[in-house]
Amino acid sequence: MTTLTRPLLVTLVDDYDVVLTGLAHMFDDYRDRILVSEIDANAVLHDAIDIVLYDSFAQPESDHEEIAELVANPQARHVVVYTWNFQPELVQAALDEGVHGYLSKTLPAKELVEALEAVAAGEVVVIEPKRRAASAAGLDWPGRREGITDRESEILALITQGKSNAEVATLTYLSPNTVKSYIRSVYRKIGAESRTQAVLWGVGHGFTPDHHRIDHWLGGP
């Protein structure tokens, strides 16, 4: 087991800037233990990173190409998946690909930091939610200020990307009826009466991926 005497350098990976910003701010009170940078999942790592934290928001979780690329990168010492989706097959597939952690978005900042430190010390850490709880305080996602929940936001993001209800159900491991229920709820909150209106609203409110990344941010080297 390795014990570091310096803060961990943690890189955040997600295609949505608002998601990255919210996640980064969770570490604001722990800058003596965590230094944050961020990259595009397809970018080249120029520094040795202690942990790459892969946020799965609106990502096709059945397609693990990005995770596999991160695990294969010799400059990423450890890769951790950060998600609320804990279907056993997803967890096992990620572990089989070589990830070093699979962590729930319900973890408070203190417990998230402790889990990342355990990963950096050489442990494989899997922490799933005890129940379907709210996301950890401090996280952000598109539409939150309009009253859209984290799960509704993910579904609207997938719809904005052109996914059908059946594809959304497959990617989120939800039943078709549950997906329809979420969509109806989103429509009410944004005042949409059709899928086209919902997509247009999504495009105008941050629900399309942004691949632009700032390599070093919030105190990272």
Rank of each mutant, 00 (worst) to 15 (best):
T3R: 14
T5R: 08
R6P: 00
R6D: 00
P7R: 10
L8D: 03
V10M: 14
V13N: 09
V13F: 14
D14L: 02
D15C: 03
Y16S: 00
V19H: 08
T21E: 14
L23M: 12
D28T: 09
Y30D: 07
D32R: 04
R33C: 01
I34Y: 07
D40K: 01
D40C: 01
A41G: 11
N42W: 03
N42Y: 04
V44M: 05
V44R: 07
L45C: 04
L45V: 02
D47P: 00
L53V: 03
L53C: 03
D55K: 05
A58Y: 11
A58C: 13
Q59D: 11
P60M: 08
I67K: 04
E69T: 08
E69G: 02
A72T: 04
N73W: 00
P74Q: 00
A76E: 06
R77A: 10
V79P: 01
V79W: 07
Y82T: 02
F86S: 03
Q87A: 12
L90V: 07
Q92C: 00
L95M: 12
L95I: 10
E97T: 11
V99Y: 02
T106H: 07
L107G: 06
L112I: 08
A115W: 12
V119N: 12
A120C: 06
A120M: 01
G122A: 05
G122F: 03
G122T: 01
K130Y: 08
R131I: 05
A133Y: 13
A136H: 01
A136D: 00
A137M: 04
L139P: 00
P142G: 05
G143D: 11
R145A: 09
E146T: 02
D150I: 01
R151I: 14
I155G: 11
L158R: 09
T160I: 05
T160F: 08
S164V: 10
E167T: 14
A169S: 15
T170S: 14
T170W: 12
T172R: 10
S175N: 08
T178P: 04
K180V: 07
S181G: 07
Y182M: 03
R184W: 03
S185G: 10
Y187P: 10
R188I: 01
A192S: 15
S194Q: 15
T196P: 02
L200V: 04
W201S: 10
V203A: 06
G206I: 01
D210F: 03
R213D: 05
I214V: 15
D215C: 03
G220S: 07
